[in-house]
Amino acid sequence: MEQRVSLKRTSLYVSGSSPANIIEAVFYNQDCIVYDLEDSVPTSEKDAARLIVYNALRHQRPAEKYVIIRVNGIYSEFIDEDLEAAVRARPDALRIPKVESAKEVQSISAKMAAIERQAGIEVGSIELWCNIESYLGILNALEIATADSRVVALALGAEDYTASMKAQRTKKGLEMFYARNALLMACRAAGVDAIDMVFSDINDLEGLREDVALARNLGFDGKTAIHPRQIDIINSYFTPSKKEIDYALRVLAAVEEGKRLNKGAVALDGSMIDKPVELRALTTIAQARAAGIKIGGENHAG
């Protein structure tokens, strides 16, 4: 299938309770802003936070960001009004906490469709990110990822997942190793993006570097951030290096050359270039471009 390329390296949570943070968040380098109605908003302020997020997006939606709203839990008393406010705010996506089954996704999607219809928004245009934060979510990750055409990403939540597993949360995160891989496999099978868990110690930038390096090597497309100072570090690991870009350019040039000469198989440096290698090269170039890297000499090999 055609692999989609989009930039979701960093998603920064911003509390719906803090106008100051919402305003400043526009200027950071994160690809996605997640306006939060859930954990960062006290129960007594849910009504006010909905109005803040709704008005923020209706009046001053950030132009160059992918905009997400995290609503409260599917079974909470807040979900219906959250959906009313969040859909009408017209974000790019909603992020749903603790998703455990395809049915849950479908029921949220149906409610969203009703609101979209009523508000004159194209039905199905608002995407879904499903937070996977329990063993059940991991076990059902593939059915969740393929439950509805709105689903474009699964995002891993470590705290609740480890609690559900009776596991201890550690900095090295070995207890998350299986969940990370399981979620990734489901995402790859479904063709959706895989977003890694939060690194919660905002003062440990070295720890963050190790953690995000591992996430990138495993194959994740991005990572959730909880503090602005994490953004540049995370971005840097999900931005291709010059060496990777140069290699990708050579791969694509070789493929072009092969097409021109009508060759079935193409080799570079003595290895065959198969379809996955070509796809990976395309992703690398798209990521680099989207990250603002100027790519010169694209035809230098041709």
Binding site: P19, D47, I52, Q60, A85
Partner: peptide, 27 residues
């Protein structure tokens, strides 16, 4: 506060004062 913040806070205060939810359908 920026204009939209004033708007949001006014709406929240009124909704609380009249004990009603915001009229989402009418936006």
């Amino acid at each position: 506060a920026l204009d939209w913040v004033i708007r949001a806070r006014m709406q929240a205060a009124i909704c609380r004062g009249v004990e009603r939810s915001f009229d989402w359908e009418g936006e």
